[in-house]
Design a protein around this nucleic acid. Structure first.
Length: 271
DNA sequence: CAGCGCCCCTGCCCGC
DNA sequence: TGCGGGCAGGGGCGCT
């Protein structure tokens, strides 16, 4: 479900309901996530006030005066606000309960997501310290991508999805930005021209920005703000469209695997 | 060190 | 209808 737009949409949807409120309890029904949910999270958070929330890469950081609750949605994770009277279902693993009887409910069938506690500066955390910049930073441009890619033999798609280069670009948006930029996904990153990277940098921002505006991309069951699905699916050119005609030139879109991920491109439009 | 596969896990869809 | 195989929006880690 979540690439950066879905994380942003989720955070925006959830935050107004809980910001400034006190935690009364944390209920962990299944703590076996990507990383174990820390023991004693409830003791740690009880009666503490949630000060603010922000996003870093695909992580959500909920700030308290003594640290941050750090949540990652993995592949199938979802975070929403529920009234505590709503009976938890099979994959509702964690509830952070607030003083007005609402809960921040973490659901994740595949359990690739994580719910962690960070004592000190989040940027120093081992899972965050090696992350590259956010895609909307001004200095993420063609020059930046071009310079970092020199000499790299890995595909431009995998380069783009490398969190040390730029964060937040997952499989959907990598496919889409490469299509819009006319770049073939399997082309070696080090052999892509400066002009192409100029286009690519712009298109990454355009695609991610537009996806956020549209409330994310709902493939299966993602719901963001106010329970609404994401409408960006309607604007996908290639992702999930292998074998179908290119919306630009009608040629049949090809689907290949790159780094174990499905990769779709137009053999005519992408060189 | 860069690059590549594996793996964590459940659900769903497809073909036999 | 049942079952096996493959695939799914991520990413850390170990190996070459």
């Amino acid at each position: 479900m979540p690439e950066l737009p879905e994380v942003v949409v989720t955070l925006r949807g959830v935050l107004p309901h809980i910001e400034g409120k006190r935690v009364t309890d944390v209920i962990v029904r299944n703590g076996k996530l990507r990383w174990p949910v820390p023991e004693g999270l409830s003791v740690l958070l009880k009666s503490k006030r949630l000060l603010s929330g922000r996003q870093r890469a695909k992580y959500m950081l909920f700030q308290f005066d003594h640290g941050h609750l750090m949540i990652h949605l993995g592949m199938s994770g979802n975070l929403r606000i529920v009234d505590i009277s709503v009976t938890p279902e099979k994959h509702d693993h964690v509830d952070v309960v607030f003083d007005d009887r609402i809960a921040l409910r973490f659901t994740d069938p595949r359990r690739f997501g994580s719910v962690l506690w960070v004592d000190d500066e989040p940027a120093q955390h081992r899972l965050l310290q090696n992350l590259g910049p956010e895609p909307f930073e001004d200095y993420i441009n063609g020059r930046y991508l071009y310079d970092l890619s020199r000499g790299k033999t890995t595909s431009v798609k995998q380069f783009l999805m490398d969190n040390q280069i730029v964060v937040g670009v997952g499989n959907i948006y990598a496919n889409e930005s490469l299509f819009l930029s006319g770049i073939r996904p399997k082309k070696a990153a080090g052999r892509v021209s400066k002009k192409s990277y100029d286009l690519l940098a712009d298109n990454i921002k355009t695609v991610l920005g537009r996806a956020i505006e549209q409330g994310g991309t709902t493939l299966k069951d993602f719901v963001g703000n106010e329970g609404k699905p994401g409408y960006f699916k309607q604007e996908l050119y290639v992702y999930g469209r292998g074998g179908q005609p290119c919306l630009n030139c009608k040629d049949i879109l090809k689907e290949v695997r790159l780094g174990q991920r499905s990769t779709v491109y137009c053999p005519s439009c992408q060189k």
